[in-house]
Simulated assay, not measured.
Amino acid sequence: MPVRPPSDVHHLLKAFEGRPAAVSASARDPVNLPMIRHWCEAMGDTHPAYTGEDAIAPPTMLQAWTMPGLSGGPGARTPAYEELFALLDGAGYTGVVATDCEQEYVRPLRPGDRPTFDTVIEAVSPRKTTRLGTGYFITTMMRVRVAGELVGTHRFRILKYAPATVPAPEPPREEPRPARPRPVINRDNAPFWAGVAEHKLLIQRCTACGTLRFPWLPGCGRCGSPEWGTVEACGSGTVHSYVVVHHPPFPAFDPPYAVVLVELAEGVRMISNITGVPHDAVRIGMSVELEFIRLDGGGELPVFRARADRPDGAES
Rank of each mutant, 00 (worst) to 15 (best):
E102S: 03
P2L: 01
K200Y: 01
F304I: 04
Y136C: 01
S7D: 12
E102H: 04
A25P: 06
G90M: 14
C209H: 05
M61L: 03
L84A: 01
G297L: 02
G44W: 00
P178W: 13
P181D: 03
E122G: 02
A265W: 01
A86K: 04
Y242T: 01
P169Q: 10
F137T: 05
G210C: 03
N189G: 11
P6Q: 04
R307T: 09
E289K: 14
H240D: 12
T51W: 03
T165E: 15
Y257W: 10
I203W: 07
T165Y: 06
L290E: 10
E232V: 13
P183E: 08
Y257N: 10
V303A: 04
V166H: 04
R110A: 15
R107D: 12
A233C: 12
T275W: 02
L70E: 03
T94D: 04
G133S: 04
P251M: 05
R4H: 09
Y136P: 07
E198L: 08
G95V: 07
A80E: 15
R310G: 06
A194G: 10
F250Y: 15
M43C: 10
Y161E: 01
H11W: 01
R182V: 14
S24E: 13
P79K: 06
G73E: 10
D100F: 03
E104M: 12
L84Q: 00
L12Q: 02
P226N: 07
R187C: 08
W216G: 06
A21Q: 08
V260F: 06
R182H: 04
K160R: 15
R310I: 04
F156L: 04
A25Q: 06
D188E: 14
S71T: 11
N32R: 15
L33R: 15
E291K: 11
R28K: 13
A281S: 13
K14P: 09
F85C: 15
C209N: 07
T211G: 08
K14F: 14
T140C: 09
P278F: 12
V243N: 05
P163F: 02
P249K: 11
M43G: 02
P278G: 13
V282Y: 02
G75E: 09
P176Y: 00
P278I: 12
T230C: 07
T60W: 11
V9N: 03
S241N: 12
A25L: 05
M61Y: 02
M67I: 11
L301Y: 01
A57I: 06
S272E: 14
G195Q: 06
S316Q: 06
G210P: 05
L70N: 09
R114E: 13
I56S: 08
M61E: 01
P59S: 13
F214V: 03
P248A: 09
L33D: 10
F117D: 08
Y257K: 07
P48R: 06
G133C: 01
G148D: 10
V268S: 05
Q204H: 14
A308P: 00
R307E: 00
H279D: 12
L202H: 07
D113M: 05
P256Y: 03
F304T: 01
V144H: 10
R294G: 15
M43H: 05
W193A: 10
A147C: 06
L261C: 09
T165C: 08
